[in-house]
Amino acid sequence: MSLLNSQNNQIDRDQLIQELMTEYGSQVTRLAYSYVKDIQTAENITQEVFIKCYKKMHHLQKESAVKSWIFRITVNKCKDHFRSGWIKRLRMNVDFSKWLKSTAPSPEEELSKRNEHDELTKQVLSLPVKYREVIICFYFQELSIQETSDLLNLKVPTVSSRLRRARLMLQEKLEGDWK
């Protein structure tokens, strides 16, 4: 991201967009996927996000805001996708585990951990969107409550409240499955 520091100079936009795609491409796809639950649609949204980033690069003011700027564009593109009149929502089972790294020392522990993760992922994706998005931002994207608030254009107390409710919903779902 060294090119951001030289904004007063002539910026090589192609190189900067390449750096942004390399750094954030998979995270943007996962975030989009968490909304649309379809990999092809998520990849299309990812392309749209980086096209918009390329066109609006002059709005990018400081390096620390890059991640939230790109995630905000992604969330908005996902919401635009659902607002479009021809789109039908499809509910699909999702497996985030193939994108997340597992460092379990033994095959048995790895299998157990994967099963738990698959169940957690399934339950997170079964939450209503307003709760799912705060869980994904906070835990999967590792954004702070303030960053999540900025990204989703919500007040901090609203994010905190939704996060608390989402945790309770997940706890109830997971405890119900294990009984």
Rank of each mutant, 00 (worst) to 15 (best):
I45T: 02
T29E: 13
S2V: 06
F50L: 00
R165C: 05
V134S: 03
D12A: 10
Q146C: 03
Q10G: 01
P157S: 06
I39F: 09
F82H: 04
Q141P: 02
I39R: 13
R132P: 01
S68Y: 01
I87V: 14
K122W: 06
D95T: 03
S144I: 10
G85V: 08
S149C: 10
L152W: 04
L174T: 01
K173W: 00
E142G: 07
R114K: 15
P107M: 06
E19H: 08
T22S: 12
T22K: 13
R13L: 06
L143R: 12
N115L: 14
R83C: 02
Q7G: 10
R162M: 05
L90C: 00
I135D: 02
E63G: 02
F82G: 03
S68D: 09
D95R: 03
E109N: 11
D12I: 07
Q146Y: 11
S144M: 06
T41V: 15
D118M: 13
W86E: 14
F82L: 10
E63V: 12
R132I: 01
S106H: 07
L170V: 04
L4D: 05
M57Y: 09
W86L: 06
K98L: 02
I39E: 14
V129A: 08
R167T: 05
D150G: 10
D150S: 12
K52F: 07
S64M: 09
N115P: 01
S106Y: 05
K55G: 06
E63A: 11
P105K: 10
D177L: 15
M21I: 12
I136F: 14
Q146P: 00
V66M: 08
E175C: 12
R91E: 14
H81M: 02
M169H: 11
D14Y: 05
S2K: 13
E48A: 08
K130G: 02
Y35F: 15
R167Y: 08
L163C: 06
T148L: 04
Y139G: 00
E23S: 15
H58Q: 12
L100G: 02
L4M: 13
Q10I: 13
E23R: 15
P105A: 09
V75Y: 07
E147M: 03
R30I: 13
S64Q: 15
T74I: 05
L168A: 09
E172Q: 14
F140I: 13
C78N: 08
K52H: 08
M92I: 01
R132L: 05
R162Q: 07
N9E: 13
H81K: 11
E23A: 14
D38F: 00
F140G: 01
L151G: 11
S68I: 15
R165P: 00
K155N: 09
S26W: 04
I51C: 08
Q123D: 12
L154D: 05
E133G: 12
L154K: 10
N44S: 13
K101F: 00
W86R: 10
E119F: 09
K113R: 14
N93Y: 04
N76W: 02
